[in-house]
Simulated scan of single mutants.
Amino acid sequence: MYITITPQKLGKTYGQSSASFVGYLEKENQGIEQEGMEHFFNQYGDDISAEEVVKEIDGNAAKLKKIEPKFYSITVSPSEYELRRLENSSNDLKRYTRELMKDYVKCFNREINGRPISVDDIKYYAKIEHQRTFKGTDRQIRENQPYATKILQLKNEVRNIEIGSMEGSIKKREREIAKLESQAPHQQNGKRIVQGMQKDGNQSHIHIIVSRKDASNSFSLSPGSKYKASNVEMHGKKVGRGFNRDQFFERAEKTFDTTFGYQRNFAETYKARKDFIKNPKIYFASLMKLPTNEKAIAFKLMGKAGLPIMPSIPTNQVQLALKVFNRLRSGVDVAIKSSSIGI
């Protein structure tokens, strides 16, 4: 489960309208018959139009400045293993989203009119998508890049030879291009994976647009707050502030597991991924203590995620293995942070 929470920022300011983002989320509906489309939904309604989403989100930003986000984007990406537990991707993910947003409000250290925040106090709209394309930050694209660079160079040479600005053999370069295409380490359906290529398999995920202001357009609720949970005095009263992201990510996992009866492996947990980045010694020690079958699954999951794996580690060489692990870890920090849940 990968979850990101981001404000929609444009340079030094924030988007003043949700129209562009909502339009982007409508891309999968292009060229599809009405009955096959995925529409926006919220806690209680389905089949909400893009126009209504823009109107409601843009109209719920009272007193917010240009330097403040008007809305946040939450992206929830279940793994292929998690998706296998679903009987109906769209309906199950809608059900999960509605439970997830109950978790979301519980992670605010705020009250409204003297009571805890409830899901009815927020304004959000969500949409299920079933496709993904490879991005420049994906491991497959980064590791294929040296081949892509050489192929582009050879293609430029072919064009220069064709227009007469360069001498040489076109056929020789075409053979080199074909060889590089086949040698690239990451392939899909017999073709080199390139940026923009659609990913195979079940890629269902959830996009959620949530307003910065509460549903009454009176209170600011920011999941981007740097405060986890604290109190501050305002107008002579103590007021709670902050949003606990760690708690939200952990609740998101537990809610999924409970809703769909999913048995989560150690390597899939938010705590494990966080330890991998911030405290590898604890991560490694926990990994080594797993039962053999769970450890095997953990290594398989790590391989799918692109993490470095040492398939066979004798227990009497744990310290040596940890040193190797730490060296490997230093090379994947960027990749982990770019794909993980907001650590």
Rank of each mutant, 00 (worst) to 15 (best):
N144D: 11
G136A: 12
K278Q: 12
I193G: 00
G36A: 06
F260C: 01
K155Q: 15
E80Q: 15
N160S: 10
K12T: 13
D46F: 09
L320V: 13
A62Y: 14
G59K: 07
E87P: 00
L10Y: 10
R173I: 04
R264I: 05
F299T: 01
F248C: 03
Q203A: 07
L93A: 01
E87T: 11
R115F: 07
L64G: 00
E181M: 07
S211C: 07
K55V: 10
K66H: 08
P7K: 01
Y270H: 12
K323D: 12
D214A: 11
S312I: 15
P291F: 03
R273G: 03
G59R: 09
P314N: 08
R212W: 06
S312V: 14
V54F: 06
G236W: 02
G331P: 02
Q263A: 13
G261Y: 07
A229R: 11
K102H: 10
S90W: 07
T97I: 04
M288C: 08
E38K: 11
K150W: 10
D200K: 10
V239G: 01
E82P: 03
Q183T: 06
I341G: 03
R245V: 05
F248H: 06
F71M: 05
E56P: 00
S20C: 13
D246W: 06
G224S: 14
P223E: 07
Q183G: 06
K63V: 04
I282K: 13
M234Q: 13
R264E: 08
V332T: 14
I161P: 00
V105A: 04
D121N: 12
F108V: 03
N91I: 04
R192H: 07
K228R: 14
T292E: 10
